[in-house]
Amino acid sequence: MEQSGHDHSYKLLFSHPEMIADLIRGYVREPWVERVDLSTLERVSGSYVTDDLRERQGDMIWRLRWADDERWVYVYLLLEFQTTSEPFMALRVLTYLSLLYEDLRRRNELTANGLLPPVLPVVLYRGSRRWSASANVASLIESVPGGLEVYRPHLRYLLLDERRYSNQKMGKAKNLVAALFALENSRDPSDVESVLDKLIEWLQTPDQTELRRNFTVWIKRVLLPTRVSEVHFKSLDDLHEVRSMLSERVEEWTKSWEEQGRERGRQQGLQEGRQEGRQEGEALLLMHLIEKKFGAEAVETYRERVDLAQADQLLAWSERILTAGSIEEMFDPAD
Rank of each mutant, 00 (worst) to 15 (best):
P153A: 07
R156L: 10
R156P: 05
L158M: 12
L159P: 04
L159Q: 11
L159E: 03
D161E: 05
D161G: 04
E162C: 14
R164L: 05
Y165N: 06
S166D: 08
N167H: 14
N167V: 12
Q168H: 11
K169T: 08
K169P: 06
M170Y: 03
K172R: 12
K172Q: 15
A173M: 11
L176D: 08
V177E: 01
V177L: 07
V177Q: 04
A178T: 06
A179T: 02
F181D: 02
F181W: 00
L183G: 00
L183H: 00
E184Q: 01
E184D: 13
N185E: 00
S186I: 06
S186F: 05
R187A: 10
R187G: 09
R187P: 10
D188R: 11
D188Q: 13
S190L: 14
S190Y: 13
D191I: 00
V192T: 10
E193R: 15
S194F: 02
S194L: 02
L196N: 03
L196V: 05
D197M: 03
E201M: 11
W202K: 10
W202Y: 07
Q204Y: 14
Q204T: 06
Q204S: 10
T205N: 08
Q208K: 06
T209P: 10
T209F: 09
T209Y: 11
L211C: 01
R213H: 15
F215H: 05
F215T: 08
V217H: 14
R221V: 07
R221W: 07
V222A: 00
L223W: 08
L224S: 04
P225Y: 01
T226A: 13
V228E: 03
V228N: 01
V231Q: 12
S235E: 12
L236V: 15
D237R: 09
E241V: 13
M245W: 05
L246A: 07
E248I: 04
W253E: 07
T254I: 04
S256V: 11
E258M: 11
E258N: 04
E259P: 03
E259C: 13
E259T: 11
G261F: 05
E263Y: 10
G265C: 05
G265I: 04
